[in-house]
Amino acid sequence: MRPRPSGEVLTGPAASWEGRNVTVAEVTRRLAELRCRVCGATPHGRATLLNLVVWAPSDADAEEAFALARGLVGPSRVVVVSPGGAGEGIRARAVVHAAPSAIAGVTVCEELVRIDLGGTVAAHAASVVLPLTRGDLPTFLWWPCAPRPDLACYRDLVGLVDRLVLESARTAAGPEAVRLLAAEIGERAAAVTDLAWAAVTPWRQLIAQMLTPPRVAALRTGPSRATVRHPAGPPPLETLLLGGWLLDAIGGKLTVVPTQAGHGVPPVAGIELTGPEGRTLRADRVEGSASCTVRVVDEPGAAPRRRTLPLRLLDRAGLIAGELELQGHDASFERAVRAARALAG
């Protein structure tokens, strides 16, 4: 799964349809018609990777999600559901386009539907969404907020899917988000993840790249300390998840300390790992850049060795694309969340 390369234009045929006060059966029929129109005499294959259901609390969220989903390579069918429809019933917009596949010259049909639910049907979104997903494909729910187990609509939608992608940081402060995530993991059959976890993946890759097994063993034997620098205020979810991952991955006598690094810095501005012999590894993101500066001091008083290493900057499309790659439970994430609870207070 990946976002379309910037500048890539969908040059293949596309067809769209909109309707108000429609039934699910009509939407399904229209999708089939659009597919026929797009395919014409030369049948394109249909993408058979996954269904992506997106919960969009507002019209703006729905538009953004629709545009963003259209920019992803891979989902077979995207269903953006918004509960803010005017009046009673279902308003639908469907787009089918022939998109380039990984094989040059071969295109596949991707299908996007936006559903606005008005009135009482909004409380029964799952009954609309399920028949609109394609059967026998893994189904993901992107819920761009913190978990809401108190909402029947949330519980019903999560019950339909194999994997739940949250964006807890959009509606909850870091410590609260960790508590909510910890409560959600294991509560449901669906695998759970959060885009904040995707956001710290480049940091985890960097740290894993820098730490050899003997260094990890030394940190574990301790006493050792990890500092994760974050913006002023309570530690953001990303900071806590990275700290939780360090606690889980290294464990032993490692102490993780979220530290405020000032205003305007990214959620994870940098990390510092100090081992028992005073060996220090420090990495700081270069502001606005897909790189970081790394400083290693082998022993107290020694001259530091400095390097600049790549550290990917992921936008929202990149984050969601990454999380759609995994289909099962992410044990590493689940352990990190549980460990992060200790840091969340």
Binding site: T23, V24, A25, I90, T120, V121, H124, S127, P131
Partner: peptide, 8 residues
Amino acid sequence: PGWVAGEP
């Protein structure tokens, strides 16, 4: 009773 395809 229940909901099927968005209809009670």
